[in-house]
């Protein structure tokens, strides 16, 4: 709900009720109020197709209401009659006569003048990984495996640092062009890509993924994405054709080191 808009509508209706406005004005206010409410009253906007259904119903109901009794018919037609017959309203009448086709024309113009949009493909954001993959003729389990160098973090910090530095080198020689200097998915090639490269620095994405998942994505790239949930259109290369296995693992280490995130731990399923 968009509170200010809703409040504004309520204030207008309170004012109209206070002034004991004529039924014609009230009906008009209901119609416009309903439109403003549907169009702007929600923080997540309602699609135009649904608004047109709703406004069709509101129009029918308003017409039904103002004509539902003799008294109401009379009350509604009075201002209209005065507008059409009394001399002093002549300019207003002329303006109305011009406004009706003008509004219709404006509506057509606005409807035709929409920007061209690409067709919509529903995409699952998180592809499902296979249980195991083969990289350089070595089977690596995505579900059960781990980064082979992760344990060095505790057992041998010196060597771990070397792996991270190697990962940094790999990243800035290969990945930086798309994933960006600060890993925010905004490298210089980004403008040509749809979907855009993953942002590692958003504090959310890689923290929810396991290192083996990142390894799978890096080594198999766009071509290795599962068939379902497509079309993916991902431009990520399959890095196993360029990098060694250790280099990919090092780069994964670097991603976590640079962003300060921790990889997701393996969940032990009670089988």
């Amino acid at each position: 709900m968009n509170i200010p808009v809703v409040l504004a509508i309520l204030v207008v209706f309170a004012f109209l009720a206070f002034r004991k406005a004529n039924l014609f004005i009230l009906a008009l206010a209901w119609w416009i109020g309903a439109f403003v409410f549907f169009r702007f009253g929600f923080t997540a906007p309602i699609p135009a197709s649904v608004i047109s259904i709703y406004m069709g119903i509101v129009s029918l109901a308003t017409l039904a209401f103002v004509s539902s009794s003799e008294q109401r018919r009379e009350e509604v037609s009075r201002p209209l009659l005065r507008l059409m017959t009394e001399k002093r309203f002549a300019p207003l009448l002329a303006a109305t006569i011009i406004a009706i086709p003008a509004l219709a024309a404006a509506n057509v113009y606005v409807q035709m003048n929409v920007p061209i949009e690409p067709p919509f493909f529903p995409r699952t954001i998180h592809p499902a990984s296979p249980p195991e993959i083969t990289v350089h003729e070595k089977k690596i389990s995505i579900d059960l495996g781990d980064n082979p160098f992760r344990e060095l973090e505790k057992s041998n910090p010196q060597e771990f640092r070397q792996h991270v530095e190697n990962g940094r080198r790999v990243y800035y020689q290969n990945c930086v062009f798309c994933h960006g200097d600060n890993l925010a998915g905004n490298g210089m090639f980004v403008h040509g890509l749809d979907p855009i490269p993953t942002n590692f620095a958003d504090g959310d994405t890689i923290a929810n993924l396991r290192e083996t998942f990142l390894f799978w994505r890096a080594s198999k790239g766009g071509p290795g994405l599962p068939e379902e949930g497509g079309p993916w259109n991902s431009a990520m290369p399959a890095w196993e054709k360029i990098l060694k296995e250790d280099e990919i693992w090092d780069a994964v280490l670097f991603l976590y080191e640079f962003t300060g995130e921790r990889p997701r731990a393996r969940e032990e399923h009670a089988q």
Binding site: P47, A48, S49, V50, V114, P115, E117, P119, F120
Partner: peptide
């Protein structure tokens, strides 16, 4: 399932 354009979605 609502009919909507890409920007609306």
């Amino acid at each position: 399932s609502i009919i909507a354009t890409v920007s609306e979605i």
